[in-house]
Simulated scan of single mutants.
Amino acid sequence: MRKHINAVQLAQATDAELINFTKEGVKGAFEEIYERHWGQMYIHAYKMLKDEDEAKDVIQELFAHLWTQRDELDLRTSLKGYLYTALRNRILNIFDSRKVRGNYIDSLTIYFEEHHLVIEERFREKELGNIIEREIANLPEKMRLVFEMSRKQHLSHKEIALELQISDKTVKKQINNAIRILKLKISYLFILLLFLR
């Protein structure tokens, strides 16, 4: 095991020698590999990924993998060639995961928007229903009674007139007045509700 190779010798060593020194446990050999190739690998990664943090991460992973696999490393090409190939494969994996993630996010967005609209519509219908009920309850008592008998009990004007002992004309007038009041109040409140949502 070599242990007494100085910094000058490491700087002058070839990549193949540095790999062997690293396998032999020579102190500083792997650091020399890192310093020699980090910059070029980073520039290449950044040009492809267009993201500084992502480029740094992928380079860090690349050299971490090189370190953990140093004993099994059997280069059939130059170290630079090996690093570029390994980096390219990692970047392609990132592109694949970006595409999958992008497709997933797109699908999720479409799903959310469609279901959000349905939920919002139902919510508004329910809210509008509550507003209508509240406004009906606020009508003058006789008008409210006539209106509810017409709309909820589905009685005719004649049936309401007989039951309340009033004229058909009065029934019709009370219902028309109720509708006019409700239209004014509900249209205003519905517009307000749309702007507040």
Rank of each mutant, 00 (worst) to 15 (best):
V8M: 09
I179W: 10
I181G: 00
E35N: 14
P140K: 06
F147Q: 01
H44S: 08
L73H: 05
L83Q: 00
W67A: 14
T68R: 15
Q69C: 08
H115T: 09
A161K: 01
E54S: 08
T22Q: 00
N93Y: 10
I19R: 01
I5Y: 04
S156W: 02
A64H: 12
M48Q: 12
I91H: 05
G81L: 03
T85H: 14
V100H: 12
Y111Q: 14
F95N: 02
E114Y: 03
N130K: 13
Y42C: 01
L117H: 10
Q40G: 13
Y82M: 05
R98Y: 08
L189R: 12
E31M: 10
S156P: 03
E141R: 08
D53E: 09
Y104N: 04
A64P: 02
F123Q: 14
R197I: 04
I160W: 01
Y104S: 05
L108K: 12
R88G: 05
I19E: 02
P140H: 05
K173M: 13
Y104W: 12
I110C: 02
H157F: 15
Q165G: 08
Y34D: 00
L117N: 10
A16V: 15
G102P: 04
I166C: 09
L189Y: 10
N138H: 11
K158M: 12
N89L: 11
I105Y: 13
L18I: 07
E72K: 12
D168M: 06
I43N: 13
L145Y: 03
Y46E: 05
T170G: 02
I175K: 05
F147E: 00
K23T: 06
S187W: 10
L18V: 07
S156L: 07
A45Q: 00
A161P: 03
D106C: 07
R134Y: 07
E114C: 00
R36D: 03
K126L: 11
L10V: 02
R70T: 06
N176M: 15
L73E: 04
F95Y: 09
S156N: 04
S107L: 12
R144H: 04
L108W: 11
A11G: 08
I119G: 09
F112V: 15
H65C: 03
K27P: 04
T85M: 11
F123S: 10
L108F: 08
Q69D: 15
S187M: 15
R101Y: 14
A29P: 01
L192E: 12
G28H: 03
F190L: 08
K172F: 09
E54Y: 01
I19V: 14
Q165C: 12
E125C: 07
K50Q: 11
V118T: 10
L162W: 02
Y104M: 07
Q153E: 13
V146R: 00
E17I: 13
